[in-house]
Amino acid sequence: MNRTLSVPSVKSRRTREAGILTLLAALIVIIFIVSMNTGFMRLSPLDVLHTLLGEGTKQQKLILFDFRLPRIVISLLIGAGFAVSGSILQGLSRNALAEPSTLGINAGAGFAVLIFISFVPATTAGPIFVLPLLALAGAALTATLIYFLSYRRADGLSPTRLILIGIAVGAGIYAFQLILSLRLDPQNYQFVAIWLAGKIWGGDWRFVLALLPWILILLPFAFYKARVLNVLNLGDETSKGLGLPLERERLLLLAAAVALAGACVSVSGGIGFVGLIAPHLARRLVGPRHQIMLPAAALIGALLLLTADSIGRWILQPTEIPTGIVVAIIGAPYFLYLLAKSKA
């Protein structure tokens, strides 16, 4: 993992990193524009421009401002959230397979949402701001359970055990989800089935508002803790030796990762893979230093999810493919490629 050794100088590294971040941001802008043009209704780039300048028809305004833009913004936020959550978890566990969905955190958050949907009758405005909190509670409970099950006094938190227990707990919760969803009436079952597949269903500015505080607080917090993650990468013994309050920092970061994942799941359902792939890609592009790797991962996650959502909206018109499935379709081949290239 010692990439810095192979890079000639700090200055050229800085330039390269800045270049990559700029490129990612530019790609996001491009896909953003394409996404505004993508959908069932015809809106040419010129129409979009007119509408943005306030000259569109009522229909065009409705489509752009009320249907497409909120979804684009939500995709960006969720992508960044999952990516940073996955990066933190991979850093904490020093395991390349860690991410909110493999650790069962997504399942826990989803389960809480599912219980709410099953037992509280449908209302229009109520649940939007409650859902992130509920998902958070579910995610936190699951994370606590996994943490305690995989913690051993003798040798601390073993990365392998963390993953294995996470997968087991996740599978258990998933089974409960299935049982619960079988008891739902057809309407709710449809909703839950699609939701479990990872569909961004909250296409509304209120969902942006519900999600935004979490992202605005937790992303900068994670960036701020980048150095801690760097030190944690060196192993528990070294971290302690360097004077890091290990358990406290680990808990704080874990809580941030769980909260990010929980808030995202409440709006998007079970989207996996973003939290797994984005950190990997980021590490390959800019190296393992978290100061630069975390922002890169956030940008990659946002880009990936926005692309997936646009493809999902366009490819089988007029029906939509749940974003989670598109992400998996893009992500799986890349992941196989990684596995094929890895030496183990």
Partner: peptide, 17 residues
């Protein structure tokens, strides 16, 4: 037809159309 079809904010968006 059903309340279930328009839960979670879909009603408001349909009503805008």
């Amino acid at each position: 037809q059903s309340e279930g079809t328009v839960q979670n904010g879909l009603y408001d968006q349909l009503n805008k159309i």
